Amino acid sequence: MTETPVFPRDQAVPRFVAETVLFVFLAHALAFFLHEYSHAVTAWLLGFKADPLALHYGHADIVNILLQREIDENVAYGPIYAAHRDGAAALIALSGMALGNGALYVLCFWCIRRVRPRDMNRPAVRFLFWLALMGAANLWSYAPIRTITTHGDMAEMARGLHMSPWLLLPFVTLPSILAMYSFFFRLVVPNWAWLFAGGPARPVFAAAMTGLLYFGFFGAAGLFGSYGDVCALLSIVSLFVLFPLSVVFCLLATGMGVIGFGQGHGQDGGAPV
């Protein structure tokens, strides 16, 4: 009796790669705008922004369209501090991470875990997976990666709360670590084999993309933007240690799901029930 392979023969790998790239760009844009609009809407609700939709959009070039490099919330923190509303400044700074990233991850996690994947289109669940990654990985890019610095969201939050970034670090890093654990152990492990069934090339490519995005693209944020030595060191660890480890973990997740480490699997490669 021959053992049934975890994955059937490769099918339509180029189409899968194209789908993944498209989903990644779309998920990144959606998560990015949710983050920036969370800042803007919070500032508007607190009376420090006239138009919640008035972001700084930058130039209409291909890099900005694909990666939103020049877009930000367009919130002036100077007048907020001048009005002695430091707590409001801290809340505005926190809102992007908490609402735009944290709440997004929780929503995606709930959808993937509560809705039976077999009742949904598999590519739709894969899009939710990449969107969940964007939420969780964005948290990682702020805490711990860009917390010990003099500018950016975490620096504004520390200033608004009148506390050292070192004191702020554990409070903002804990949710980020919990999201990371949740993503890799409660989304990746039980769902990986089902999400990326169709041949061995699919989980390998998905594992590389997952590690690259989480600990490479987002984890390397401290190397750019003059965030300082601590942020750069954390990014180096993320890029050269956690990135490869996460790829290996995702590849091993196939076996974990098959042996019941997660919630279970189906005949087509690991659908949770």
Rank of each mutant, 00 (worst) to 15 (best):
R122A: 09
R122H: 02
A124N: 06
V125E: 04
R126C: 11
F127M: 08
L128W: 12
F129C: 04
W130T: 09
A132H: 04
A132R: 05
L133K: 00
M134D: 10
A136W: 13
N138M: 12
S141E: 09
Y142N: 14
Y142H: 15
A143R: 09
A143Q: 10
A143I: 10
P144S: 08
R146P: 00
T147L: 05
T149G: 09
H151R: 13
H151M: 08
H151P: 06
H151V: 05
G152V: 10
D153A: 14
E156I: 00
R159Y: 08
G160N: 07
H162N: 10
P165K: 04
W166I: 13
L168Q: 11
L168H: 11
L169E: 11
P170H: 02
P170T: 01
P170K: 03
V172Y: 05
T173Q: 01
T173V: 02
L174W: 07
L174G: 02
I177Y: 09
I177H: 01
I177L: 15
I177C: 11
L178D: 00
A179D: 03
Y181V: 15
S182H: 08
S182K: 04
F183K: 03
F183G: 06
F184K: 05
F184D: 09
F184V: 05
F185H: 15
R186M: 13
V189W: 07
V189M: 07
V189F: 05
P190S: 05
W192L: 03
A193K: 05
F196E: 06
G199V: 03
R202P: 00
P203G: 03
V204M: 09
F205Y: 14
A207G: 10
T210S: 14
G211F: 08
L213P: 00
Y214L: 08
F215N: 04
F218N: 15
A221L: 10
G222N: 02
G222I: 02
S226K: 14
S226Q: 14
S226V: 02
Y227L: 10
G228S: 03
D229A: 14
C231M: 09
L233E: 14
L234A: 00
